[in-house]
């Protein structure tokens, strides 16, 4: 039964997406070109979409990571500086290392010190932002060969980062859906204590997913730096909220335990279509923000309705059969 309801929610999302896509395509013929859809719409969303993947895992465990944008910027920045001083290889290593360390710090504090995820990542958000500002003195850090390659190369006519995204999306879908690891995540989200007493090393799993998230942020850092050719310390502002918007739009419950990767992927597509579509329609940036907020609210409400009904059905099945209809 639960399966069925989830299916309808994803389907509803797909319909919303299709309507938006069609509507925009009708209003603005410039939108419906291969070049625009692939090289602008999809290419622009890749960073958010990629980070949304590990973020989904984190949110399913009942956690959250507010520091993603700043982790990304810090990784890009230190990497760029290392590349400028030493070599590209140093840049790559430093970027990946920074991402991993940032994620590890979050993970250890959340899993071992038992500080709530929101507080930890709020504090580390300031810390990473501040470090990026401090080491760069507010200046831009510029792209280097490897990140340029990641941000601008195409393979078979499709930008490299889209291939990467597709690959990662597949991996994460399988990870969450088909592996024991994925099931443990749901279990932690629904009841961490029961999971722990069932013999699952919850602490280790939490640390792993936060480090994973940091690593993906580092990967995204290359793409971001390559695409924009430079990065400034405040480039990650609001990035965290955008990523969370995508995940929540995809039907993952912020309370943990509920959600899937398909939803996140469709959520990514919806935001991509809105972002690029509204720009093509010449709708000012301010209205775009409102529309995004409205879409999020609609998704939340429809999810609340569906979820409410599903829950009611499970709980009051016997006494109140009429709630089914």
């Amino acid at each position: 039964m639960k399966e069925k309801f989830k299916f309808t929610f994803n389907l509803a999302l797909l319909v919303i997406w299709a309507v938006l896509f069609a509507g925009i395509a009708v209003k603005a013929p410039g939108f419906l070109s291969y070049n625009y859809i692939v090289n602008v719409m999809l290419r622009n969303i890749v960073e958010i979409g990629m980070v949304a993947l590990p973020m989904t895992l984190i949110i399913i465990t009942g956690g959250i990571d507010l520091s993603v944008g700043n982790t990304m910027v810090l990784a890009a920045m230190l990497g760029g500086m290392a590349a400028a001083k030493a070599s590209d290889i140093a840049g790559v290593l430093v970027t990946l290392l920074t991402g991993a360390v940032c994620g590890l710090l979050n993970g250890v504090l959340i899993a071992k010190a038992k500080i709530s995820a929101m507080v930890t990542t709020l504090a580390s958000m300031f810390l990473y932002l501040g470090m990026a500002r401090g080491v760069s003195h507010g200046d831009s850090v510029y792209s280097y060969t490897f990140s340029e390659y990641m941000g601008t190369m195409s393979f078979l006519g499709i930008p490299l980062q889209i291939w990467l995204y597709v690959l990662l999306a597949l991996c994460f879908t399988v990870l969450l859906k088909k592996t024991a690891f994925g099931r443990k995540l749901y279990s932690i989200g629904l009841n961490p204590h029961a999971t722990k007493y069932a013999g699952v090393n919850t602490e280790k799993i939490l640390v792993i997913i936060y480090v994973l998230c940091g690593m993906i942020c580092a990967l995204v850092a290359f793409i971001f730096l390559g695409r924009f050719t430079s990065v400034k310390y405040d480039a990650g502002t609001n990035f965290n909220l955008k990523v969370i918007t995508v995940v929540v739009l995809g039907g993952t419950s912020i309370n943990g335990g509920i959600g899937d990767m398909k939803g996140t992927i469709i959520g990514t597509l919806i935001i991509a279509t809105l972002n690029s579509g509204l720009t093509v329609l010449n709708i000012p940036i301010d209205v775009q923000t409102i529309v995004q907020g409205a879409v999020l609210i609609i998704a939340l409400i429809s999810y609340a309705v569906v979820n409410n009904r599903a829950r009611k059905k499970r709980i009051i099945k016997v006494e109140a059969p009429d709630a089914l209809s």
């Binding site: 603005a28 070109s33 480039a235 690029s276 010449n282 940036i285």
Partner: peptide, 21 residues
């Protein structure tokens, strides 16, 4: 971009829309 988001990224986003148009 709005004042608190006066960054290069935002400008690039807007430009790409105009280029497509």
């Amino acid at each position: 971009p709005s004042q608190d988001q006066a960054t290069n990224q935002k400008q690039v986003d807007i430009l790409e829309g105009w280029i497509a148009q």
